[in-house]
Deep mutational scan, measured.
Amino acid sequence: VLKALERTRQLDIPDEKTMPVLMKLLEEAGGNWSYIKLDNYTALVDAIYSVED
């Protein structure tokens, strides 16, 4: 979780936006981090930006 938060902080995305999206992605992935961690957490960042749209 810390590495995911560090990555999104680099992009000026607050933890308050990151955590709900991260928890949803983890739930959808059955707790499997490998998809979320791919390409420096690209799936997480993309999911956060899609929620903002």
Rank of each mutant, 00 (worst) to 15 (best):
V1P: 03
V1Y: 11
V1T: 07
V1H: 06
L2E: 15
L2Q: 15
L2P: 07
L2N: 11
K3Q: 14
K3G: 10
A4Y: 04
A4P: 01
A4V: 05
A4W: 06
A4H: 01
L5C: 09
L5I: 04
L5E: 04
L5Q: 05
E6S: 07
E6T: 08
E6R: 07
T8L: 09
R9E: 05
Q10N: 09
Q10S: 12
Q10H: 09
L11C: 09
L11S: 05
D12T: 06
D12R: 12
I13Q: 01
I13A: 01
I13K: 01
I13R: 02
I13V: 06
I13W: 04
P14Y: 05
P14K: 06
P14M: 05
P14Q: 05
P14A: 07
D15Y: 04
D15I: 03
E16W: 15
E16T: 09
E16N: 11
E16F: 09
E16V: 09
K17H: 08
K17N: 07
K17M: 11
T18Q: 02
T18H: 03
V21A: 08
V21S: 03
V21P: 01
V21H: 06
L22H: 00
L22W: 02
L22S: 00
L22Y: 00
M23H: 07
M23V: 09
M23E: 09
K24F: 07
L25F: 05
L25W: 04
L25S: 01
L25I: 07
L25K: 02
L26C: 03
E27D: 12
E28W: 09
A29Q: 14
A29D: 06
A29F: 15
A29I: 08
G30R: 11
G30L: 09
G31S: 06
G31K: 05
N32C: 11
N32I: 08
W33C: 02
S34F: 15
S34A: 15
S34N: 14
Y35T: 14
Y35P: 08
Y35F: 09
Y35W: 14
Y35E: 10
I36G: 01
K37D: 08
K37I: 15
K37Q: 15
L38Q: 15
L38G: 09
D39F: 08
D39M: 08
D39S: 07
N40D: 10
N40V: 03
N40A: 02
Y41G: 01
Y41C: 03
T42A: 15
T42E: 13
T42H: 13
A43F: 10
L44D: 00
L44Q: 00
L44N: 01
L44Y: 02
L44G: 00
L44R: 00
L44T: 00
L44I: 04
V45A: 02
V45S: 01
V45Q: 01
D46T: 14
D46L: 15
D46S: 13
A47I: 05
I48C: 02
I48Y: 04
I48N: 02
Y49M: 14
Y49V: 09
Y49L: 14
Y49A: 11
V51R: 12
V51H: 13
V51G: 12
V51Q: 12
V51K: 13
E52H: 12
D53E: 14
D53H: 14
D53S: 12
D53K: 12
